[in-house]
Structures are given as C-alpha cells and as structure tokens.
C-alpha cells in the first residue's frame, strides 16, 4: 500500500465508525481525537477494523502511534507494504 492508500484506508474506517466525520478541514499532523470527536472506544474500533481487514495485530502499547493521520501512516506503512 502506498502512503496515500493507507490514508484513504484510515479515513474510510473512520467514516464507517462515524458517518458525519468531516475530513475537509482535517490537519494530518494534529491528533484525530480532538478534530473528529473520537474517543478511546472509537480507537479500539480502528484497531479492530485493521485487524479484520488486514490481519494486523496492533499491541495496546502502540495505540498512541495512531494519534494523527500522519502518525498512522508512518506506523502502518512498513506493516502494510505488501498489502
């Protein structure tokens, strides 16, 4: 997956969790949580969706790496390079 594919994937997963999520003004380097009104339960959903779709195992101590769109891409890029 390219960096852009991963970005699309994350946004698709979030849109699936919250159909009203507004990505237009999203700053990729800022925390998703504050900008999109996501809570910790929603983060668990993102992790579980990644697991379901791409068989990724993300340990709990790595959750902070999913804070912003950019950090998600950085973290997932090596994991999804063959996807």
């Amino acid at each position: 997956m390219t960096r852009n594919d991963i970005k699309e994937l994350i946004m698709e997963i979030i849109a699936d969790i919250d159909e009203d999520a507004d990505f237009d003004s999203l700053k990729p380097d800022q925390p998703l949580r504050d900008q999109l009104d996501l809570d910790s339960m929603d983060f668990l959903d993102i992790v579980m969706e990644l697991r379901k779709r791409h068989k990724l195992q993300i340990p709990e101590e790595d959750y902070p790496q999913l804070a912003s769109l950019d950090s998600c891409v950085n973290y997932l890029e090596p994991l999804l390079k063959d996807a």
Binding site: I17, D18, D37, D39, M41, D42, D45
Partner: peptide, 12 residues
C-alpha cells in the same frame, strides 16, 4: 448528541 450513552451504544 454523540457522546450520550444511548448513541455510544448504537455506534459501538
């Protein structure tokens, strides 16, 4: 009212 327990339940 997205943070309300009822809506959390639907969403989850």
């Amino acid at each position: 009212d997205k943070k309300a327990p009822l809506n959390q339940l639907f969403r989850q």
